[in-house]
Simulated assay, not measured.
Amino acid sequence: MIATLRGRVANIRLDAVVLEVGGLGLRAYATPATLASLRVGEQGELATSLVVREDSLTLYGFADADERDVFETVQTVSGVGPRLAMAMLAVHTPDGLRRAVATEDLAALQRVPGIGRKGAQRIVLELADRLGPPTTGGPAGGAAPATADRRDEVVEALVGLGWNLRAAQDAVTTALPTDAGAVESDDVAPLLRAALRVLGGGHG
């Protein structure tokens, strides 16, 4: 099992990063918040989880071991695979998920695309004794404003996470300040996080 990766950041996409480790470029899929903490050309370190399928080996990267552990734990719920687990962590922080489960906040869980009321009830039931209590009291921090120039990339990423096209477009429009001007591509990740908070109703 590959538990951690450390190396130079070679490339960052909206849903993944490539780290150069021992002469190899390893791609790890990650949440917008995790990707926003990395910079091309600098050293990066991720806690990782390797998902093995008959036809693929897929690496997922996380800011810390706690996020990775939550990713792996939520997949013990029937019907929750890696993609849905990543969507859950894109909408909620690990403690946000713990609070939702501990307080049986079905509405918060249903803000994740792909989770309906029955799915939320199943998550609460099956994770009640597995995630543990929240370690902090507050929601996730805020995100910086970004521009509409790269709006299509963010919409595409949201659709990939499971939202429909119209909802994704509306969320990006809402997340953008009315006076947004042209900025660099590094600001795409903050816009994606802001749009996710719009879709998630502000819960972290």
Rank of each mutant, 00 (worst) to 15 (best):
D105V: 00
G137M: 10
M86C: 07
D149P: 00
A85H: 08
R117G: 11
R166N: 09
G96E: 09
A108Q: 11
A120E: 09
L131V: 11
D95L: 09
I123A: 15
A128C: 06
P82M: 13
G160I: 06
V91F: 12
R99S: 13
N164I: 00
L89E: 10
V159Y: 01
P139H: 07
P145T: 07
G96W: 00
H92W: 07
L125M: 13
V155G: 12
N164A: 09
L127D: 10
A144L: 13
P82W: 07
T136S: 12
D149M: 03
G132M: 10
P133E: 01
I123K: 11
A171Y: 13
P133M: 04
A157G: 09
T147I: 00
A146W: 02
G138V: 05
R166A: 15
G132A: 11
R111V: 00
T136A: 15
D105L: 03
L161I: 07
G137I: 02
L161R: 07
A108H: 04
L106N: 08
D105R: 09
L158Q: 07
G81D: 12
R99N: 06
Q169D: 12
A100M: 08
V155H: 15
T135Y: 01
L125H: 15
Q169T: 08
V101T: 10
P145N: 11
E156P: 06
G116P: 13
E153M: 07
L165S: 09
N164Q: 14
M88H: 04
Q110G: 05
V172L: 01
T147V: 00
L89W: 02
I123Q: 07
G141F: 03
V154R: 10
T174K: 14
P134M: 06
L131Q: 13
A107N: 07
G141N: 02
L161D: 08
R117D: 03
G114N: 06
V101S: 10
G119T: 00
A157S: 05
G81E: 13
G119E: 00
D152M: 11
R83W: 01
G160V: 11
A144K: 00
P134W: 03
V101P: 14
P113V: 03
E126L: 11
H92P: 10
L125F: 15
E156R: 14
P94F: 03
A85M: 07
E153Y: 03
A87L: 11
T174C: 01
G132S: 06
A171D: 08
A108C: 11
L89P: 14
A168G: 00
A85N: 10
G142Q: 11
A108T: 15
A128D: 10
V154A: 15
G138A: 15
E153A: 14
G160K: 09
G96C: 11
G142P: 13
R166M: 05
E104D: 14
W163E: 09
R83D: 02
R122W: 01
A90N: 10
D170Y: 00
G141K: 04
V159S: 10
